[in-house]
Design a protein around this nucleic acid. Sequence first.
DNA 1: GCATCGAACGTTATATCATTACACTCATTT
DNA 2: AAATGAGTGTAATGATATAACGTTCGATGC
Lengths: 125, 125
Amino acid sequence: MLARLAKAGRALTAYDILDAVRAQGLRAPVQVYRALEKLRGEGLVHRIESLNAFVACAHFRRRHEDSVAFAICETCGTVSEFAVLATARALRTRTRRSGFVTERTTVELRGRCAACVGKGSEAGA
Amino acid sequence: MLARLAKAGRALTAYDILDAVRAQGLRAPVQVYRALEKLRGEGLVHRIESLNAFVACAHFRRRHEDSVAFAICETCGTVSEFAVLATARALRTRTRRSGFVTERTTVELRGRCAACVGKGSEAGA
DNA sequence: GCATCGAACGTTATATCATTACACTCATTT
DNA sequence: AAATGAGTGTAATGATATAACGTTCGATGC
Ligand SMILES: [Zn+2]
Ligand SMILES: [Zn+2]
Ligand SMILES: [Zn+2]
Ligand SMILES: [Zn+2]
């Protein structure tokens, strides 16, 4: 299942994954959600909140949910993961001043990836 | 509908809102979603992606979806909106270096608000 | 006035995402 | 062996969101 996610390069919904792994014997959504929960616990999978979908962790590091961001291309669906340690720290500090204790951050950017921007400008020229 | 959202102080799902406005004649989800879409377009409502829910804009400013963040209390559900102009700019600059053109950012923090942290530590002491 | 058009709306049905409930298996403990 | 408890598979359901389609109604042109 993790292999499928990693190969996809984009976010897959739980039901996308379900379709992909039916051959391996998984038959019901709850099985996929349980597996995803486990993988998320191991830091191998991230959830993209704005897509209700999942990606394989690109960094093979454990537990960095608190300082990761995603750039999501609206045109081709590609999801790129990058670390935002300083940004996350700044946000935590900022809210801490009003008494809010941050446990987790979600940072997701929508836009167009280099490849799709290139294609777009070609078409427009 | 906007009044209901503003009064709530927390995020409401479309179906929460639907229940609240049945008295006003709205009967179906799609009507609520259409109204929300309009209000979002006017910058009066924000969507909280990690909750699949909606809040009234706390700033009464138009169109700042690209630089707003939310601190969401996991204990009491309170959502606080704050501006993150510098942070959003930094993220855009950062991804721009790899060719990604950002159109919109989602920044959501989960944790515990001042009130709930206070109660928690009292209980723990 | 009135035919035509198109945006907005209401209704129904359906699609999509996620969890609950429960029975069964199997390894661990006593 | 019986009791316990974690994990699993199945079915059903709940929660979120959109599609499809006919109607209303104001704007436009004749
Ligand atoms: Zn990662
Ligand atoms: Zn792209
Ligand atoms: Zn706002
Ligand atoms: Zn709170």
